[in-house]
């Protein structure tokens, strides 16, 4: 997820909070700071934070990040004394980040009682999923008469100059992996994926790296079809655009997750993570984001639930392999596909 709006006010607020509480005992932290994407904050987590403060008296400040990658580099730059207590990040970037033992703490599962409730795939030693989503196909029904049934449809001539497709660093190469899987390859052999993306070029209006601007382009009619998670469907229908979404197989599943940063406020931070995973807050988050809840008891909006792929269609790709290769894939993509 990406937005190019730096939350300067949030940043100032955060550093102010840090100065005010330099060495308060861990249990007494009066506030914590989270680093999160701007839209995620405004559309659901801010509400959760308000409820959290009402319940515990602990205030939650937010610092926004354009992308998970930017958030990680910022955290690393403050490794000696991080001013951020909880970091929201894509799970694949979390996998990369967790190797930094000085910066990130293993999650104290005993203190996070809700962790045991959530689905197993959303639970790892250093991160806990906060919602899940799949990459699917969203289209405007006014511009696309015949519904889309499969990924292969995207290559059809009827979609010439109609598509918005995530670039390599958006959704961590999932589009490449889907294209590879469809064409006889897979994560171990992305060659067919690159070939397929090259064939897709005539249909692509924009290879997008900011999903805010991509959604905007869909809403304005610059695009008819967007490869995106269900949140895009929610945002454009909220904006009054008639749209539908399909999640054809293979349907890559991803989590956005929370990580615990090594700060003196870790106990308050863990309480907040736990709070986010409670059933009620999972309802708030999933419905606010237009994504899937990780708590089995929680539910998202019915129109979003309708887009979720059948269990047998779901795939998840190995983040370690992605992390090891994404730099090279991105270079190749820029050179051969996007140029």
């Amino acid at each position: 997820m990406a937005e190019f709006i730096m939350g300067r006010r949030h940043l100032l607020g955060a550093s102010g909070g840090l100065l005010a509480a330099p060495s308060l005992a861990r249990a007494q932290a009066r506030d914590i700071t989270i680093q999160i994407w701007g839209t995620t904050w405004t559309s659901s987590v801010r509400t959760v934070a308000q409820r959290f403060e009402a319940a515990t008296g602990i205030k939650v400040n937010a610092v926004t990040q354009a992308t998970s990658g930017e958030g990680l580099v910022r955290l690393q730059s403050m490794r000696a004394a991080p001013t951020i207590d909880v970091w929201f990040t894509t799970a694949s970037v979390a996998e990369r980040a967790k190797t930094d033992a000085q910066l990130f703490l293993p999650l104290p599962m005993a203190a996070i009682s809700n962790a045991a409730q959530i689905e197993a795939g959303a639970r790892a030693s250093h991160w806990l999923g906060v919602y899940f989503y799949q990459l699917g196909i969203v289209w405007r029904t006014d511009q696309v008469r015949e519904p889309i049934a499969s990924w292969q449809d995207l290559w059809a001539p009827r979609f010439a100059q109609k598509l918005g497709v995530p670039t390599m660093n958006s959704y961590q190469a999932r589009m490449l992996l889907v294209a590879a899987t469809l064409n006889g390859g897979g994560i171990a052999n992305v060659e067919p994926g690159f070939e397929a993306l090259k064939r897709l070029k005539p249909n692509v209006v924009t290879w997008y790296s900011s999903d805010t601007t991509a959604r905007q382009a869909l809403a304005q009619g610059e695009l008819a079809v967007l490869v995106a998670p269900p949140a895009a469907l929610k945002r454009v229908t909220d904006a009054g655009v008639q749209a539908r979404m399909i999640s054809p197989p293979p349907s890559p599943m991803m989590y956005d997750s929370m990580m615990l940063v090594n700060t003196p406020k870790r106990e308050a931070a863990a309480r907040f993570i736990d709070f986010c995973l409670s059933k009620d807050m999972q309802d708030v988050i999933a419905q606010g984001q237009g994504m899937g809840p990780v708590h089995p008891g929680a539910s998202t909006l019915p129109e979003i639930a309708a887009t979720l792929p059948k269990p047998e269609d779901r795939v998840s790709y190995d983040d370690d392999i992605i992390n090891a290769n994404i730099g090279a894939w991105n270079e190749r993509f820029s050179r051969e596909v996007a140029s």
């Binding site: 992308t67 990658g69 930017e70 990680l72 580099v73 990369r96 390599m168 660093n169 994404i326 730099g327 090279a328 991105n330 270079e331 820029s334």
Partner: peptide, 13 residues
């Protein structure tokens, strides 16, 4: 943009 990608995508600072 290239430098940005090296830092924020490839993490090859």
């Amino acid at each position: 943009n290239y430098i940005y990608d090296q830092i924020f995508v490839a993490f090859d600072i």
